[in-house]
């Protein structure tokens, strides 16, 4: 599942810019397609999001401030943001290794591994949730050996991080892989000939070149992580102030019929993930321009 492509208009596309009267365009269907798109977009996306933007103000500014002045909400947001950051950071080296092995080694079973990397995209979140909760539970296949080492994963923030690592891993691999593929192996060969050790090649040669890809993979994984619900709630333990994620608190507030409380958390989540994805898109554009400029020079 390619979640990283954006709907940016292709440069030099054959469609002409609208200049003057639309009636000159010989191609039929503009009005119909525009009408259908506006109707569909308006009903399914704009209307509900407008409700989200307007609703918090409906009961007055004081009600909204009261909703924001909620320690449990800040605790939940902190759990969500912290876990998402930690999971995305831990995924970086793992994703880099996988991307690298896929591109630069004669990996036996490459096609199977390539397909497996997209598994977290393919498996429904509820299935991921109960599976990871069972896997990391104190009696689970991974939970039992880990608990003998004194590490308990399930029903704590560690469990949240483990779940978000699973969900976020493909974002890192799929961001780094194409850049690594376009990178000439001669770069590494030259470094080797100049006497660099493998770890030096990683630190001094590859990481700087791959940095934009790593950051955008991190951003995508993080944006997904702060909103993630299904794969997390079964393993999280869901103790208020400790292991309760922000999306779960939205659900709790809704069950309490506290729409103002639910909406303010939802609004913060939406702004955070949108800002994060916008930053990733900008970074990508800049990186693409940089590569083009380098190639031309």
């Amino acid at each position: 599942m390619n979640l990283s492509t954006t709907l940016s208009p292709a440069r030099g596309s054959a469609a002409p810019r609208a200049k003057g009267r639309r009636a000159r365009d010989p191609l039929p269907g503009f009005r119909l397609a525009l009408g259908a798109t506006l109707l569909w977009l308006g009903l399914i996306v704009v209307l509900p999001l407008a409700a989200l933007a307007v609703r918090p103000w409906q009961e007055g500014a004081s009600a909204m401030l009261a909703a924001l002045n909620d320690g449990r909400m800040f605790a939940a947001l902190r759990v969500s943001f912290q876990s998402a950051v930690i999971a995305a950071i831990l995924d970086l080296p793992l994703g880099l290794i996988l991307a690298w092995a896929l591109v630069r080694t004669r990996l036996p079973g490459r096609r199977v591994i390539d397909a497996l990397i997209d598994l977290p995209f393919a498996i429904p979140t509820a299935v991921t949730g109960i599976t990871l909760a069972t896997l990391y539970s104190p009696q689970g296949w991974l939970g039992a050996p880990l608990s003998r080492l004194g590490i308990s994963v399930a029903y704590s923030v560690t469990g949240i991080v483990a779940a978000l690592m699973f969900v976020g891993l493909p974002f890192i691999v799929r961001s780094v892989e194409p850049v690594l593929r376009d990178l000439p192996p001669e770069l590494e060969e030259a470094a080797t000939l100049l006497g660099a050790r493998p770890w030096q090649i990683v630190a001094r040669v590859l990481t700087p070149v791959l940095l934009p890809a790593l950051i955008s993979g991190f951003g995508l994984a993080f944006a997904r992580g702060i909103g993630e619900y299904g794969s997390v709630i079964f393993i999280a333990g869901n103790q208020p102030f400790r292991s309760e994620i922000a999306p779960l608190l939205v659900v709790v507030r809704l069950q309490e019929f506290d729409y103002a409380g639910a909406t303010s958390i939802a609004f913060i989540l939406l702004v955070a993930s949108s800002a994060c994805l916008a930053a990733v898109a900008m970074l990508r554009k800049r990186a693409a321009r940089g590569l083009v400029a380098e190639g031309a020079a």
């Binding site: 979640l3 954006t6 709907l7 940016s8 208009p9 798109t37 977009l41 996306v45 704009v46 209307l47 509900p48 999001l49 409700a51 989200l52 609703r55 979140t125 944006a223 702060i226 909103g227 993630e228 619900y229 299904g230 999306p247 779960l248 939205v250 659900v251 809704l254 729409y259 639910a262 909406t263 939802a266 989540l269 939406l270 993930s273 949108s274 994060c276 994805l277």
Partner: peptide, 26 residues
């Protein structure tokens, strides 16, 4: 046109829980 493209993209960045909540607000 750019605004439409951006609006179509929005649901991807929305938390699933928020995608449900907005309908309850309506």
């Amino acid at each position: 046109r750019g605004v439409l493209v951006a609006l179509i993209e929005i649901p991807i960045s929305v938390s699933p829980v928020v995608a449900g909540l907005v309908w309850l607000l309506l």
